[in-house]
Simulated scan of single mutants.
Amino acid sequence: MSGRKAPDPAALPLRERKKLRTRQRISDVATRLFFERGFEEVTVAEVAEAAEVSAMTVFNHFPRKEDLFLDRIPQGIELAVAAVRDRAPGETPVAALRGLALRLVDEGHPLSAVGHPPFWRIVYGSPALRARLREGYDELEAALTATIAASGTDPQPRVTAALAVAAYRGACATSVRRMFTGEAVEVVLTDHRALLERVFRELERVLPLGG
């Protein structure tokens, strides 16, 4: 599976590097505070103070408080779009997304969606974060629909995108809830990879078009 590499931060102009560093600092501080005290108990003003920036600066980087914790949603959408857009000739969008999902698990990437129960306990314990996560999946579906449609090879881009996102979302929710019951993370991760492989293979079988 192909995919465009993210720009090397060192190659960016100084202004952009400073913005990235500020964004990362805010995110790191916010995450620490949320883990220490709980998402609902920390205000944006407190995050700003701890990160030594203004509240306006926080909102310049993160439109909503929820985005401070779920700050990788844009990156996840970008990776998925790139996987579909830059897929090999003859490869279907679903196959490209399967390859991306498996690679993220193999790399232990934060966007692999499972592997860190404390993070998911905070998300599932907050109505606001759960709502933002649902919005993130909706945004992913819309972006994939547009990308698949642009390729002109799939007669039903919205259906393909919706089913791919639903398959991924369902597999992740299943594995996260298993971790909540106390199952060993290593076991769940192994089964999670196999589950992703299975659901995407089945989806490829029923959606053979779009290469």
Results as ranks from 00 to 15, higher is better:
191 D>V: 02
189 L>T: 02
166 A>D: 12
167 A>P: 12
175 S>Y: 06
197 E>K: 04
186 E>I: 06
166 A>M: 11
181 T>M: 12
188 V>W: 05
165 V>P: 14
175 S>T: 05
165 V>T: 12
180 F>I: 09
194 A>P: 00
187 V>C: 07
174 T>A: 03
176 V>N: 09
183 E>A: 14
192 H>E: 03
183 E>R: 15
184 A>Q: 15
185 V>R: 10
187 V>R: 14
167 A>R: 03
176 V>S: 01
182 G>L: 15
187 V>K: 14
168 Y>I: 03
182 G>F: 15
168 Y>L: 15
182 G>Y: 15
166 A>G: 10
168 Y>E: 14
194 A>Q: 03
194 A>N: 00
184 A>E: 15
183 E>C: 10
170 G>L: 07
193 R>K: 11
174 T>S: 02
198 R>F: 04
169 R>H: 13
172 C>Q: 09
177 R>S: 08
195 L>R: 04
190 T>F: 06
181 T>N: 08
189 L>A: 01
179 M>K: 01
174 T>F: 04
175 S>P: 00
165 V>C: 14
192 H>A: 03
193 R>F: 05
180 F>W: 06
167 A>W: 11
185 V>I: 13
197 E>G: 02
169 R>C: 13
190 T>E: 12
188 V>S: 06
193 R>W: 02
197 E>C: 00
192 H>T: 01
194 A>R: 03
167 A>C: 11
175 S>R: 02
184 A>N: 13
185 V>S: 07
189 L>Q: 08
188 V>L: 05
171 A>T: 02
168 Y>G: 15
189 L>S: 01
169 R>T: 12
197 E>M: 02
188 V>M: 08
193 R>V: 02
165 V>M: 13
185 V>E: 12
195 L>H: 01
194 A>F: 00
197 E>R: 08
166 A>P: 11
169 R>A: 14
194 A>K: 03
189 L>V: 05
192 H>C: 03
